[in-house]
């Protein structure tokens, strides 16, 4: 008799959204974008068609499947957003990011200490990279809530390879857009804009580091950071800079927006760590988004459950100091 011992991160089979249902929904969307009922779809969801759509549908990456983790309901992922460029309330980005802010066409620049500086149209870039893949990742916000999101995109390592960093490049600096005329939060100046994030080069080339251009098999909605954003599932969500316009390779550690705003509260690394509290709240557990009124508090996992994959990156470092 074969006994199967579930891994500690695996959810019971009953908790998983039936995959056929999830795939079916994806296929329907795909058929829509192919042109069946195109006129109707264009009338109903113009934004979905205007955004970068190259490369869909993405192939699922079997290493990061949706079967081990239950994806959060799509409507929550697209209406509960921290995107301060479009307001600090989580309900605001869905509204304000879809009022005349254009994410197509979109150019992203590779710059700094590289042999191949370049500017790419996002769709061209996706083709050059060789298409998209889907990965289901945990997502943990620094505010102690979490989601599970099926991302579509490509490994950041492929983009780094395209840029060919010079030997003196040690960090990657990401810069988001700056358009106060269309971004109400930038107009208010609630943070220093443009939003900036950074990774160590070895973090950027780690297999988990991902550039997403879609969620749930469709192009990223504006409020989720269209047309392309960073996804580093072992770090707090604020590292996942949205709507990137510039990726720069540097010798010095970049100053990321939140760590400049409140250096004692947000660091450069921002690795998910249940043992290191935020100065104002505990990080030991998290609220599961979409679990209903009385459900869903769970223990936070070291590196958000990706300890095996990423722990080696931080060997010998004091994680309480390098928070």
């Amino acid at each position: 008799m074969h006994l199967r011992f579930p891994k500690d991160w695996a959810l019971p089979a009953a908790a998983v959204t039936p995959e056929p249902l999830y795939r079916l929904a994806q296929r329907r969307e795909f058929l829509k974008t192919l042109g069946i009922g195109l006129a109707g779809a264009a009338l109903l969801r113009p934004s979905a068609l205007l955004a970068a759509t190259a490369g869909f549908p993405a192939k699922g990456n079997p290493l990061y499947p949706g079967t081990a983790l239950k994806p959060t309901a799509e409507e929550y992922v697209t209406s509960f957003n921290n995107f301060y460029e479009f307001g600090t309330d989580k309900s605001e980005p869905k509204d304000y990011a879809n009022k005349g802010w254009k994410t197509d066409p979109w150019t992203v620049e590779l710059a700094g200490l590289v042999n191949q500086p370049a500017k790419f149209d996002v769709n061209e870039l996706v083709k050059k990279i060789g298409g998209l893949e889907e990965r289901v990742y945990r997502h943990r916000c620094v505010e102690a809530w979490s989601m599970v999101i099926p991302w579509d995109g490509f490994p950041l390592a492929k983009l780094v390879a395209l840029a060919e960093p010079k030997p003196e490049a040690k960090y990657v600096r990401f810069v988001s857009f700056n358009d106060p005329a269309h971004a109400v939060g930038q107009k208010e100046g609630n943070l220093d804009y443009p939003y900036v994030e950074g990774l160590r080069l070895d973090e950027a080339t780690h297999e988990l580091a991902f550039i997403a251009t879609g969620i749930y098999g469709k192009a990223l909605p504006n409020q989720n950071g269209a047309p392309l954003r960073l996804v580093t599932p072992w770090k707090y969500g604020f590292k996942g800079i949205k709507s990137i316009v510039r990726i720069e390779f540097t010798a010095a550690q970049p100053k990321n927006t939140w760590s400049v705003m409140a250096p004692d509260e947000y660091g450069f690394y921002a690795n998910v760590n249940p043992k290191v509290d935020h100065p104002r709240w505990s990080q030991a557990s998290e609220r599961v988004i979409g679990a209903g009124l009385l459900g869903g508090r769970q223990a936070t996992l070291m590196f958000n459950g990706y300890e095996k994959q990423v722990a080696a990156l931080y060997k010998g470092m004091d994680l309480a100091k390098n928070f």
Partner: peptide, 18 residues
């Protein structure tokens, strides 16, 4: 918002809203 209108921005974490 929690029970009637079904606002997903609230439904994501209804108790937090309350």
């Amino acid at each position: 918002p929690v029970f009637v209108s079904g606002n997903p921005s609230v439904g994501a974490d209804p108790l937090k809203y309350v």
